[in-house]
C-alpha cells in the first residue's frame, strides 16, 4: 500500500526526449491506466516507476519517499510484463515462490502463500507444470500470481492482456480489476486499448508523444476531453471533428448554424461523438451516407457531412437512407466540444 507521486518526470535516451514531463499524484489503492498509441512512452514511464530505466529529471516518490535512485528490488513493487517473463526452467509454483524465497520467508509460509494465490487465480492444478506447458491465459495468470504473492505496495502492468484473444481479454480484464479491488494495491496499468482504459481505470493518463494529454477519471475524459487527441483517442468510434467558426456568438460549420455559444470568436474545431447524434427530420446536420454497419444493438453510418468524414451511431437497425442517401441528424448542444485548432486544447 503506497502512494506514488510523479513530479515533472522526464526521460531522454541520449539526445532523444521520450517523456516530456509527467506530473501526477496517485492515491493509495488507486487503479491508474496509462493509455496511448504505440511508441508514446507508456512502457518507458512504467519502467521508470519500476526502476528499470533511470529517470532523466524530475522526482519519483513511492510512499512519500524519494525513489529515483532506489534499486528495483528495494522499491517494493511487482510487475507483470507483456510477455509475462516467466522463468522457463522453474515450475509454476517455483515461479511464484521465487521472490518469497529471496526475501527469506520460511518454506511452509511460502507454500501456504503460493497455494492461496493459486486458488485465487485457479491455478491449483497447474502448480507442477513448466511455463511452456501452459496456455497464454494460464501464463498470464501465473505472472499475476507471481506479482500478488509478494503483496507489494505497488503493482505495475505492461499490456498484460495484449497477447490474449478478445474473449479471454474481457474475462481477464474483469478478474484483474476484481483482484485489485480486493487487494487494494495501488496499480499502474499500461494499455493501448481504450476500452481497457475506460473499464478498468479509477483514473487514466492519456499519453501522446511523451506528453500526458489528460489525466482524469474515464467519464471525465469522455465527457470533457481536454485536447483533440484525448477526444479522439477515447471513445469508439472516435469523435467526429468539423472545422467551425464562431461569428457574432453563433457557431457555424460552413453555412450551417449549430446554435449560439458564448466563447471567443474565430476559428474552432467542433467535436461531436457518433453516439450523440440522432435521426431527426428537423435536424440541421445533413449526413451523406456512404456505408452502413449494422452491429445489432446499434448501426454505424459512415459518410460525409459538410465535406468531411463523419460517423453516426444510431440505436437499433437502420437501413441505408433513400435515393439521395441524405439523412438529417440532430444533437444536444451540451454534447458539442469546442477546441482551439491551433493548440488542440479545449475551449
Amino acid at each position: 500500500m503506497a502512494t506514488v507521486d510523479l513530479k515533472d518526470i522526464k526521460k531522454s535516451f541520449g539526445k532523444v526526449d521520450v517523456i516530456h514531463g509527467v506530473d501526477m499524484e496517485i492515491a493509495d489503492g488507486e487503479f491508474i491506466v496509462i493509455v496511448g498509441p504505440s511508441g508514446c512512452g507508456k512502457s518507458t514511464l512504467l519502467r521508470m516507476v519500476a526502476g528499470l530505466e533511470t529517470i532523466t529529471s524530475g522526482e519519483l516518490l513511492i510512499g512519500g519517499k524519494r525513489a529515483n535512485d532506489t534499486e528495483p528490488m528495494d522499491r517494493d513493487i511487482a510487475m507483470v510484463f507483456q510477455n509475462y517473463a516467466l522463468y522457463p526452467h522453474m515450475t509454476v509454483a517455483d515461479n511464484m515462490a521465487y521472490g518469497l524465497k529471496i526475501a527469506g520467508m520460511p518454506k511452509d509460509q511460502i507454500k501456504a502463500k503460493v497455494q492461496e494465490a493459486a486458488k485465487l487465480l485457479q491455478l491449483d492444478h497447474l502448480l507442477d507444470r513448466k511455463p511452456r506447458e501452459l496456455s497464454g491465459g494460464q501464463r498470464q495468470r501465473v505472472a499475476m500470481g507471481r506479482a500478488i504473492v509478494r503483496e507489494p505496495s505497488v503493482f505495475l502492468f505492461d499490456e498484460p492482456l495484449s497477447n490474449l484473444d478478445a474473449k479471454l481479454r474481457v474475462q481477464m480484464r474483469l478478474e484483474i480489476k476484481d483482484l485489485q479491488a480486493k487487494l487494494g494495491i495501488t496499480s499502474l496499468y499500461v494499455t493501448h486499448d481504450q476500452v481497457e482504459a475506460m473499464t478498468m481505470a479509477d483514473r487514466m493518463i492519456v499519453m501522446n508523444g511523451g506528453v500526458a494529454e489528460q489525466i482524469g477519471t474515464p467519464l471525465d475524459v469522455y465527457e470533457r476531453p481536454q485536447t483533440i487527441f484525448a477526444a479522439q483517442f477515447i471513445g469508439s468510434p472516435s469523435m467526429n471533428l468539423m472545422d467551425g467558426r464562431i461569428d457574432g456568438g453563433q457557431l457555424k460549420v460552413n453555412d450551417v448554424s449549430l446554435g449560439p455559444v458564448d466563447t471567443r470568436e474565430g476559428d474552432v474545431t467542433v467535436g461531436l461523438r457518433p453516439e450523440h447524434v440522432f435521426a431527426d427530420s428537423a435536424g440541421v446536420l445533413r449526413l451523406n451516407v456512404h456505408q452502413s454497419e449494422p452491429l445489432g444493438a446499434n448501426t454505424l453510418l459512415h459518410g460525409t457531412l459538410e465535406g468531411k468524414a463523419f460517423t453516426a451511431s444510431l440505436p437499433g437497425v437502420h437501413r441505408m437512407p433513400g435515393n439521395d442517401r441524405d439523412m438529417s441528424l440532430n444533437f444536444a448542444s451540451e454534447n458539442l466540444h469546442l477546441f482551439d485548432p491551433k493548440t488542440g486544447k479545449r475551449i
Binding site: E71, M73, F81, N83, A85, L86, Y87, Y98, A103
Partner: peptide, 18 residues
C-alpha cells in the same frame, strides 16, 4: 536470454549474483 527475465528477477528482489 530475454532481458525481461532478468528484469523480472530484479523486481522479485534478486541482486546480481543471485
Amino acid at each position: 536470454i530475454p532481458k525481461s527475465l532478468i528484469e523480472a528477477a530484479a523486481i522479485d528482489g534478486a541482486r546480481f549474483w543471485k
